[in-house]
């Protein structure tokens, strides 16, 4: 049980960290190695070779704008070239809005006396960081249980004992990832193009039931040991409203497949964290002398409130 559990966790974590890396972002011009934001109002460009100093320090050769506003150029105040002439730092007058992608136009790049042509490149935050911020956002900052108040019935039902809590959390994570991805595909490629959005609820709940059934069957055949320990929670998964809330949120936002995966995974892991925290405290609570009127659920709710208050401290936090 413990070994399989550990294997699971390792697999999940490996998937989380490797997937975005596979989608590493390249640059649009062969001579430009990378672009990134630096500080509140600078952009750093790394070239593949040394560039001409005279070209590089001429402000007129550079134009920066937000991608959504191609007609409004942001005023450039200063450009500095590193001693090896490979990295260029463009400083702007005003603070950059780093959540949106910026376009950088470079006119006639000159390197070692050769004209390499103009380049239009996108400057954005590291995509991996963005994905990670979606994951951690769904997991902790916008934890579905403590800040969105979803999935409470199952949460209070299965958080009495630690093993139950972990079993439920893992089962839930698997099912939510499967069902959220299926719903995302169906929504993007069937419901949206045919303007059938109003069928969301029926379709999503159907897919959830389907994926619960699928996970049930597969687990039973592939790993009966695992099924014995987690099978009982599969029935409960469908009564958890997070599982239907995630597809609905995905439908409302314009996430792509990987971002959707991150959100679903974050929601599942967030539920696992919440269950684990709650069960640790509730196990202790059994030794405490609680007044009879508060015994059982009432005190659990008060505890949940305390957790929610402490999770309020995360709100508005932005990573990367």
């Amino acid at each position: 049980m413990n070994a399989t559990l550990r294997r699971y966790i390792v697999f999940t974590l490996a998937a989380v960290f490797l997937l975005p890396l596979l989608l590493g972002c390249g640059s649009e011009h062969h001579f430009i190695k990378s672009t990134s934001f630096k500080g509140p109002n600078s952009i750093v460009i790394t070239f593949a070779g040394p560039v001409d100093e005279k070209w590089a320090t001429n402000i007129a050769n550079f134009r920066v704008n937000e991608k959504t506003d191609p007609d409004i150029y942001l005023p450039v105040s200063n450009i500095s070239l590193s001693p090896d002439r490979m990295t260029l730092t463009i400083t702007l007058d005003e603070k950059l809005n780093q959540t949106s992608t910026h376009s950088l136009f470079m006119k006639g790049i000159i390197s070692e006396g050769r004209d390499l042509g103009s380049a239009l490149v996108n400057v954005k935050k590291f995509y991996f960081g963005y994905l990670l911020s979606i994951l951690i956002g769904a997991m902790i900052i916008n934890n579905f249980v403590f800040t969105k108040y979803l999935g409470l019935c199952v949460f209070f039902g299965t958080s009495k004992k630690k093993p139950t809590a972990i079993g439920m959390g893992i089962t839930f994570t698997i099912v939510i990832v499967v069902s959220a991805m299926m719903s995302w595909f169906l929504y993007q490629f069937v419901l949206k193009p045919f303007r059938l959005d109003f069928l969301q609820i029926v379709v999503f709940i159907g897919l959830v039931s389907l994926s619960v059934q699928a996970v049930d069957t597969i687990l039973r055949k592939v790993n009966p040991v695992l099924f014995k320990s987690f099978g009982v929670y599969l029935v409960l998964v469908i009564a958890n409203c997070i599982i239907i809330a995630v597809p609905l949120i995905l439908a409302d936002n314009e996430y792509n497949a990987v971002e959707s995966l991150m959100l679903a995974l974050g929601a599942g892991l967030g539920f696992l964290i919440a269950l684990f925290l709650m069960s640790s405290v509730r196990e202790r609570l059994e030794l405490a002398d609680v007044p009879p009127t508060f015994r059982g659920l009432p005190i659990a709710f008060i505890l949940g409130g305390l957790f929610a208050l402490s999770f309020l401290g995360f709100s508005g936090m932005s990573l990367f």
Binding site: F301, G304, G305, A308, F311
Partner: peptide, 10 residues
């Protein structure tokens, strides 16, 4: 939002 838990508990 967090007060919802307290209210339901009480």
């Amino acid at each position: 939002p967090a007060a919802g838990f307290f209210c339901v508990g009480l």
